[in-house]
């Protein structure tokens, strides 16, 4: 392929992409606003901590070693010593499937109604994928694996574990009830905490 042919292909891209790029915001200003908002939130949280907790509690909060309360909704992937602390309202709404060295966390009822053709489609909430090489977060990006939404979990001497978000619609688009339930859970994925060998992963 030559550059002109590639440009012609780019010229035939999805209209929606072109329309979206027609008027782009000033991202720098947007980032600045978000950073300010985050800083204010963090400052407020910090002030609250200082006022509310004793010095001992504050010291404990700095510790990275955690114990998972028994009543918490969790998934434990014993082979890799990884524990996921899930939102409480996920109880009874998810299943885990092992696929090679990878794990698929999905909503069984939504998956059932989706008419899944492959293991990686239908009701998928997220995947935990094992890459057969040890990568730091920056190397993961440099190697070009960050094509879809992801969360870097941890790496060992020869492997890297990444949480990937599905890129396609995972529910039956004709079923609004499924859509609401899926989107509700999807929003909460960010709240999941990961513990490797009792150490909390950021």
């Amino acid at each position: 392929m030559n550059k002109k042919q590639l440009s012609e292909h780019i010229g035939n891209m999805d209209d929606r992409l072109v329309e979206q790029a027609e008027k782009i915001p000033n991202y720098r200003q947007l980032h600045h606003r978000q950073t300010t908002r985050r800083f204010i939130t963090a400052a407020a949280a910090f002030a609250l901590m200082v006022c509310s907790f004793s010095a001992g509690a504050l010291a404990f909060a700095r510790e990275t070693v955690v114990e998972v309360p028994v009543e918490q909704e969790t998934i434990t992937l014993e082979e890799i010593n990884l524990t996921l602390i899930l939102p409480d309202d996920w109880k009874g709404k998810y299943s885990v499937e092992k696929n090679g060295q990878n794990y698929i966390v999905y909503h069984p009822r939504i998956r059932e109604g989706y008419g899944t053709e492959t293991a990686f489609d239908g009701g998928i909430l997220f995947y935990i994928v094992c890459h057969e090489e040890s990568m730091m977060p920056e190397q993961f990006v440099e190697n070009g694996y960050d094509l879809v939404g992801y969360r870097y979990l941890f790496s060992t001497s020869d492997k890297t574990y990444i949480l990937y978000y599905p890129s396609d619609v995972q529910w039956n688009p004709e079923n609004p009830e499924q859509e609401t339930e899926y989107l509700g859970m999807e929003e909460e994925i960010e709240d999941i905490k990961f513990i490797v060998d009792n150490i909390l992963v950021d």
Binding site: S7, I10, G11, M13, D14, L17, V18, Q20, A21, I24, Y27, L147, V148, S167
Partner: peptide, 16 residues
């Protein structure tokens, strides 16, 4: 579609 929105838009502004 899989790129972050701001990266995508920069790409399209430049090459479209």
């Amino acid at each position: 579609w899989r790129l972050e929105e701001e990266k995508r838009n920069v790409f399209i502004r430049r090459y479209w």
